[in-house]
Amino acid sequence: MIRFKDVSKQYSTKDGGLTAVNDVNIEINDGEIFGIVGYSGAGKSTLVRMLDGLEAPSTGEIDIDGTDVAKLNGSALRKQRQKIGMIFQHFNLLWSRTVIDNVALPLEIAKVPKTKRVQRAEELIKLVGLEGREHSYPSELSGGQKQRVGIARALANEPTILISDEATSALDPDTTNEVLELLLKINKEMNLTILLITHEMHAIAKTCDKVAVMDSGRVVESGTVFEVFRHPQQQVTKNFVSEEFTTQKGDTTMTLEELVKKYPEGQLIRLVFHGPQAELPIVSDVIKRYPDLTISIISGAIHQTQEGALGSLDLQFIGDEAKINDALEYLKKMRVGTEVIHHE
């Protein structure tokens, strides 16, 4: 179990103090995939770098299985670091080493004998699906392949925790999905705790069990991915969720403002369905019950999260205001999440 307790980090800069991480409390259970989402500069990377002792917290405790990491140094810290694997946005492979030598590097550092190193590296290369490329150099690989090497390398010392620091941010959408699938696979096969730092809600939805949303150093919202997606509380979370709902592949990429401009009449309402309701004929019910309302569908999307499907549907309601409110009440009764995007 990982526990951040009242963790803060201040930097002193020329223009005075800068609080990168502000009073963060998070608990992450073993075997969980925990997402930390936020815009750049929100303090996500600083937070996880503390797990590895690459940064020290100004105040607070960072507890990994009963050890306060912030208090470790020297060889105890180096030993602790071997229990945590890390993958990075820019892969951070050594260009001077072949794939197999990159994967074996953490084992060299841990002073594992050579024959064992080779054997373990070969296993890992197989696990990440890079057989046949053992003796290639990183410059001969694609971005997705490089990240697979990064993952294999991170797993070399059989860590209990894997930190993914924006590991898919430099990859195209298809490759991102492949890498996320691989992370899911190793999470299940090795019962590894994964911390996924990202600014892409898509990656969170696809892989994570729980999520914490960070904004200017604070955790502003956290919970299961399902809950956070269904009922985002904070504005920054709403932005992330709606970004994810409106920028689906092959779907309309209109922003909310553009939607409002295009459909100025009546009310624009976003419905969020989950699990069982997604299977009920709720929209046709509403249309039958309120024949005076004109209802048109503007856009929709379905997301697979770790806990089931989440759907969103943007509708335009035109008609009598009281009737529209009745319809919304009815939808709420059916436990469909509603959000008025625009009101005439």
């Binding site: 810290l77 602790q80 670091r81 050594l94 953490p106």
Partner: peptide
């Protein structure tokens, strides 16, 4: 980044 990665390996 590479130096940091290797430091993080211990």
């Amino acid at each position: 980044g590479v130096i940091e990665a290797v430091e993080s390996m211990g």
